[in-house]
Write a protein that binds this DNA or RNA. Structure first.
Length: 103
DNA sequence: AGTATGACATAGC
DNA sequence: AGCTATGCCATAC
């Protein structure tokens, strides 16, 4: 069993393209529904190959402190993935929210 | 071993 | 509707 971080990475890796998930959801899949914070911490340590841009907060918006790329780049990447945005500028969680590998 | 911090979440004001 | 405060979990120092 790897550290939580690894679990988070694995879960994020499993997120299908055009789909996004929330920290809380990932935490839940990790077995720690209250570890949303730890998830964010893990993603901060996330190595290459981890589509961290597919991880959004429960508001459907990106975190206020994403990588130096900035939220703008984030939104761009998400758009490239085919992720629809709401008029509010947030991802349409109801449409691309990934509830787990069950799809 | 204890304290401090953090890419969240929820409730209250 | 936006901001502040508190809670929870795991990691780092």
């Amino acid at each position: 069993m790897d550290s939580f971080f690894t679990q988070i990475f694995e879960l994020v890796r499993q997120i299908p393209e055009g789909r996004v998930s929330t920290y809380g959801q990932i935490a839940l899949l990790s077995g720690n529904p209250r570890a949303a914070r730890a998830v964010g911490y893990a993603l901060h340590h996330a190595p290459d190959g981890i589509p961290c841009h597919r991880i959004v907060n429960r508001n459907g918006g990106l975190s206020d402190a994403f990588l130096p790329s900035g939220k703008e780049t984030h939104r761009f990447l998400l758009e490239l993935e085919g992720i629809p945005f709401d008029a509010s500028g947030n991802v349409k969680m109801d449409t691309v929210m990934w509830y787990g590998k069950e799809e």
